[in-house]
């Protein structure tokens, strides 16, 4: 396998894809989003529970490739228990990482993303960036529906 492939399919990603966190929908919460990737038919339904301005349980169900499943899993762990504004910030940082063409971000920013930096290699494969962003798109949409999204960052 090429080096790019090893960077794409890091062990952490394969592990998350195999044992995803947050998979299986919890009871209906504050808001829900259904997202599809029309090019491959992948789908996800994501539910968020909010406790004031803080994200409680994040659960999801869907089907997709290892990149989309692992990204949903990592994201759920990352944003649960975080203030909404913080979750949105992480989303923006992750989107920036995905559009870095594999160059990565400043070390400080990457540190904030924790396990999600494992997806740096995905950015070298433009066709797969959408896979990694599917879950984050669902989170942004769910927060917008819950009416707690920061409108200025909503783009």
């Amino acid at each position: 396998m090429s080096q790019a492939m090893e960077q794409l399919y890091q062990q952490l990603i394969l592990d998350h894809a195999k044992h995803p966190h947050g998979k299986g929908l919890a009871e209906p919460g504050t808001a829900e989003s259904h997202q599809v990737n029309p090019t491959c038919g992948d789908e996800v339904t994501l539910r968020v529970h909010l406790d004031g301005d803080t994200l409680g349980k994040v659960s999801w169900d869907g089907q997709g490739c290892s990149i989309s499943q692992a990204s949903l899993s990592v994201m759920s762990g990352l944003v649960e228990g975080q203030p909404v504004a913080r979750a949105e910030e992480l989303g923006e940082t992750f989107r920036a990482l995905m559009h870095s063409r594999g160059a990565g971000l400043d070390e400080d920013l990457e540190d904030e993303l924790g396990d999600a930096t494992a997806f740096t290699g995905v950015a070298q494969f433009p066709a797969r960036v959408k896979c990694a962003l599917l879950g984050w798109a669902a989170l942004r949409d769910a927060l917008a529906q819950a009416g707690v999204a920061n409108k200025e960052e909503d783009r």
Partner: peptide, 19 residues
Amino acid sequence: HAHDVGQVLDDAGVAVRVG
């Protein structure tokens, strides 16, 4: 998943459609 299948094949120079 088909996308992952396609990625491994692409790494070997084999272009297939996925989706």
